[in-house]
Design a protein around this nucleic acid. Structure first.
Lengths: 342, 342
DNA sequence: TTGAAAGCGCTAACAG
DNA sequence: CTGTTAGCGCTTTCAA
């Protein structure tokens, strides 16, 4: 298919050597102005594009970055990828996206795949199933540039882009309390993930500040991060068949939040009169829900951008960046009817 | 960073030539069982991975496919990408995703970028702004494998994966009519896109079948595909300030549909009593809307899968596939409150 | 200022 | 059965 011009073609056409053409194209100083102009004009004419594969082989870099997320079809991640793509593109990098579907095995395979593709760096949000991060530790120690975002690998001193999860959950929980709810349940992704635990701590702290006791039966985990609807359904069933039902629920991840609402309604509860609901989600349409949903929104696009900037900086610095960059964004709590006493 | 083992390393370590190692690794028949075992074991031990960049250079193919869509953060496309990724991954291809943000210039740049990256084929859903498809025609004539999905380039005999847009819009419109609405407006993406026009024709045909006249002032286009909220807002404002307002609206693309609902509510209209709403969207949460939204849903995941299978088949067939494959899926009309007389 | 040659990792035609 | 060699496209010493 579609053979493009090579340096050799140009050299032949112009009766020069490939090295001369190469130098002309790269604006080397050791080149005659005459020759240079000749080459550039011809290259322009035939629409010459250097072969990035050959360049990669030569330079031992691929100008591509690998992205590992659970799913693209997720409000948070699709927005983050949008940010990643915007920066990568304008910096001349390609983005190779892989999905784990929350499987640790798939994650490991993806990382291997990307590495074997010689990506120059990795942008990772851990899968829900991941507990063993030794491979990442190993790669990091070998100097592979890695930036974690949203879902961080603990115990590794890498760059990390996150939000203030504690504060986010604290504020959301406190808002429920202030609105008059006192029996607040927490439904989360797996506690494997640091962000789940941090959000849980925020929840706990808000209860404590307001003198509410944390009931263990009010804390539910979805070990597959809400990818499987049945998991969320099960958690909600348990919660809502308690002798002492919660009067409010806080859901701490995107997928879980958007599935909680229809399930609760299907179970016959009305929101917020039977049970209030607040959730972490980047859904653009939470306002259109019945009832309009109170959400914790993360600056996904900016997080994707910053993660990528950080990664590219790490890739392009000749000397590995020994100090890791950690950047924490604030979230936005958007209060709507679902978390207000009706 | 992270130097991996090469064939040369293995050859040196084992005192063989690189070609012998290569043959052993590739299971060539002309190789001693002894040597082969030796090489394979050693390769296994040091976790040898062939360098795909070198392979690409050699084979003149990159084992990657380029995807061009308007935005990842779009229900339909993120689901389609999910399907694309699933097939590509299991066939050993990488997926490089680019976004046009509905700009024709950006689209052209992306295609160039992907081509210069020597992707083996292209999966494309046109941008809303695209009118000139001569570049695609050119590429196609040069034998570049291309599959269009959802948003097709007309006048090029390429593979295309679509839905039956006419039927989808016809059914959705007819449902509104049967439900008792008679002043039905149509709000679409740009008529540049074939699918917009086909959906419009379905709308028109349904009106005609039921003896309703099509009012030109009831047909609105969003030339940026609904990416800009103001555009949708403007269309709705014009529609709803007509002396004779529509009593129902059909929105024929994902982005437009999900923005119509909050805008209409903000304008003070209640749905469906003031105006009914039906829309094309793959949103997972349309059921949770207030009111639950009637939608036309496309089999996005399957479309992504089939588009990718088709593309890979085209890439891997030695002789170009002269007959183009066109596959048309049916959509699903999910009727909810938003399109029923209250 | 330009050219020849080597090398990035790999495969394959050609010898032996 | 195995080794030598050339070449994919490009950059970069080293010579001239």
């Amino acid at each position: 298919m579609f053979k493009s011009y090579t340096i050799k073609d140009i050299a032949k056409a112009l009766g020069l050597s490939t090295s001369t053409v190469s130098r002309a194209l790269n604006g080397s100083y050791e080149i005659g102005a005459e020759t240079k102009k000749l080459v550039l004009e011809y290259a322009e004419k035939v629409n010459y594009r250097p072969n990035p594969i050959a360049l990669s082989l030569k330079e031992q870099r691929s100008r591509s970055i690998g992205v590992v997320v659970c799913e693209v079809a997720n409000n948070y991640f699709s927005q983050a990828i949008n940010g990643i793509e915007s920066i990568a593109y304008s910096s001349g990098y390609h983005v190779i996206i892989t999905q784990t579907h929350e499987s640790a095995a798939r994650e490991a395979a993806n990382v291997q795949h990307l590495l074997s593709r010689h990506v120059d760096g990795l942008l990772i949000a851990l899968s829900a199933e991941t507990t063993d991060t030794s491979e990442f530790k190993f790669l990091h120690s070998k100097g592979v540039p890695i930036v974690f975002f949203d879902r961080i690998a603990e115990g590794i001193d890498t760059h990390r882009i996150t939000v203030n999860n504690f504060k986010a959950a604290f504020e959301a929980t406190e808002q429920l309390i202030i609105a008059g709810f006192s029996k607040i349940a927490n439904i989360s992704s797996t506690p494997n993930l640091l962000n789940t635990r941090e959000r849980f701590e925020g929840y706990r702290a808000a209860l404590q500040k307001h003198g509410l006791t944390l009931l263990p039966e009010f804390v539910k985990y979805c070990y597959q991060g809400g990818m499987v609807v049945g998991e969320v359904e099960h958690a909600l069933q348990e919660l809502m068949s308690l002798p002492e039902k919660p009067d409010a629920i806080i859901a701490t991840n995107d997928r879980i939040t958007t599935t909680c609402l229809p399930i609760l309604k299907k179970m016959g509860f009305s929101i917020p009169s039977d049970v209030a609901l607040t959730g972490f989600t980047n859904s653009e349409v939470a306002e259109s829900f019945a009832p309009p949903l109170t959400v914790v929104r993360q600056p996904a696009f900016m997080m994707g951008q910053l993660a990528t900037e950080t990664l590219i900086k790490a890739i392009e610095s000749k000397h590995p960046l020994y100090e890791s960059i950690s950047q924490q964004f604030d979230t936005q709590l958007i209060i709507r009817d679902s978390s207000l006493k009706s």
